[in-house]
Design a protein around this nucleic acid. Sequence first.
DNA 1: ACTTAAACCGACTGCTTGGTCGGTTTATTT
DNA 2: AAATAAACCGACCAAGCAGTCGGTTTAAGT
Lengths: 205, 205
Amino acid sequence: MDKNLKRMATMQRMQVTGLELFYKKGYYNTSVDDILKELSLSKGAFYYHFSSKEDFFIQIVENLVVRKIYSMLIEPIEGHENPLDLITNCFEDALETAVHNELDYGFVLSNFINEFNGRNPKIMKHLSDILKIWEVNLVSSIQKGKFNGHIDRHVDAEGVAIYLMSSYVGIRTLMVEMAPSARKYRFMTQLRQYFKSIQTKPQTV
Amino acid sequence: MDKNLKRMATMQRMQVTGLELFYKKGYYNTSVDDILKELSLSKGAFYYHFSSKEDFFIQIVENLVVRKIYSMLIEPIEGHENPLDLITNCFEDALETAVHNELDYGFVLSNFINEFNGRNPKIMKHLSDILKIWEVNLVSSIQKGKFNGHIDRHVDAEGVAIYLMSSYVGIRTLMVEMAPSARKYRFMTQLRQYFKSIQTKPQTV
DNA sequence: ACTTAAACCGACTGCTTGGTCGGTTTATTT
DNA sequence: AAATAAACCGACCAAGCAGTCGGTTTAAGT
């Protein structure tokens, strides 16, 4: 078999399991041995493929986390329909997987940001870059909505983006072990309420 | 001097420094020795006053964190004025201290919730209890606002509370090392926008 | 079949951790 | 001044950690 293929397969397996454990137990509280035990692999295998635990984590972020964020939170809002509808559906879907599948690592990001903040600037850089990408995409989506007449021309696109990101990051934290399904429903209702307040006002005829 | 007083003073010193370091570096990433070095105290002193690191942390939560949350997020919204104004001012103040004083441990809570989630149920219980208290107080404040005619009678008080908590927890995460002052301003603007949409609609005369 | 190198093994090292414990200091009581 | 107990000290221990390294297995190339 192609050597390169085997290499990729092993690295992939390590990264997937690594993310799962880092997410569940935290980076500092997960040892390299924990991950290797799960995979029945040895220290040698690990340090053959990765130069350090930190390097390993950064590769996980670059490969798995970035892609997950893209597919869950960025691509779904790219389109020509009403961005408020797109965002609503996107959040709805993202929160739904969060309700059912505890390991969807849907919003790993805020967990890790909290964990590394002020402790590991190198890793923080990678994480906040992802947030920035999300923010940029939200902003341009909202601006498009203003052009297309879906969103009131007076609203501050940056402000809306930050408010959306805040509430999403927050609800993901609050949904942890606390009636996630009910919370999701209530959250989405209020989100729609907020959206109503920034959409183009129908001209009073 | 009163023995009890000395005892309290030492324990207080330990807890204050403990919270500071736990907040800065995380619970699992802060050793008991780190805290003791900061205070020039010994292992013996620590384990004379506290039975374990975990017990120590729980006492910090019960003493320091609970009180901070009360004084910053709960007491300021108790009053008979328009709850939406009270909450606006409360968030404004809380975020302002977060901007200027990195160590205000204003929202330690979401950090710790992320850190202990799925790892230490005992500690999680204490933390989510605090969230619950906050929630209950927000809900009753909003309900009061509905009675007093400040808030539209049709809004779901629970939903508003959860939406507020989410956005606050979220903005605290996002303000980490990323233009906190500008973000605060944008956040507050959107919060006011949202509040406008749930306040009592002026009768079209 | 033989060579070669990639992939993997696992004992080992040096270091840090939470927690213990026999002992010393400090301050109050008598 | 002697007695007593609370407060504190710091060497020590077992366990866990990231990372190393000399060696073995596996599989592709010739």
